[in-house]
Amino acid sequence: MAEPVTWRSPHEIKRREFMRYAGGTVLTAVAGAGLGLALHDGRDGRQYFEDLANAETVTLPRYDLNNPAGPNRIAVVHGQAASVMVKAAFDTLGGLDKFIVPGDVVLVKPNVAFDRPPEMGASTSPEVLSAVIQQVRECGAKRVLVADNPINQPEGCFEKTGLGPAARAAGGEVILPRPERFTDLAVGRLREGDQVTGEPGEALDRWLVFYEPLRLATKVIGIAPAKDHNLCGASMTMKNWYGLLGGRRNQFHQAIHEVIADFPLMIKPTLVMLDATRILTRNGPTGGSLADVDTTQSQIVVGTDMVAVDAYGWGLLRRRGRPPEYLARAKRRGLGEDDLGLVDKVEFNV
């Protein structure tokens, strides 16, 4: 019987022919083995979970400037016509053009949390939003972005609060919270140029943030309604930043004051505005009855220190008892002034 296995080719084979014959084999073997070796993952669980915990995060830049009227200045403007009140309030801080310069991309962050008409006081007033956008545009802003991550369904919230139509009519762009627009944020670590400084918050370290509008923006203005809140007492300009976060924020209620006191650490906005043209005094933060809404004190409050603005705003809810703990916490951490005696308040009617 002949040999069944021969290791020599039955026919003469030239080198060039062999290259042609075996070239593909050798290339595939080298490419496949090389790819496998190059992509080899030798990590054990220790390294895997360390890497997972240290996965890439984004940081926020500072959006704040020095308040030309002094850091503790807040403007309290009483009146009925939103556009007049907004202009007068900005002027009290030295004029909006000290904060917004031509070419800026400005994120305006209203509270759009609930699918309710504006009269219910559960969301920022569309007239105030509209007035702010107009003022910002007059300062030469290139784009005005309006964004929030509502609790209720986002499209419905923006339409039924009237904030979406008002933003578009005034020349703003609404950015809706699509999942791909969220990224993990290193809370408390702020970017100035190439430098990143700061420590994580007391309660928040890494958290999913609605990053897309923050990435595009060069300036940020928060506009919060003044509302009762079932757990933390009041929802005002500090709590407003809750709406830029995603993920399991229903866990925030386990340490609500720590979380809210982390917000002035997390974001340094250019300006914050408390919209008290309507005040939701009961059944907050959702409300649901016109009887819960106080329109008799119509005013807006503007400042650069959200703790100071909220310390003033607390009084508008006319409660007995201590102010929300998050104000004192923020003060203790040097994140703002909660003592109204130390706040430079300029108050008038228009």
């Binding site: 408390g188 866990q251 979380v259």
Partner: peptide, 8 residues
Amino acid sequence: SLLLESGN
């Protein structure tokens, strides 16, 4: 997760 984790 169930509980809010401490940030620090």
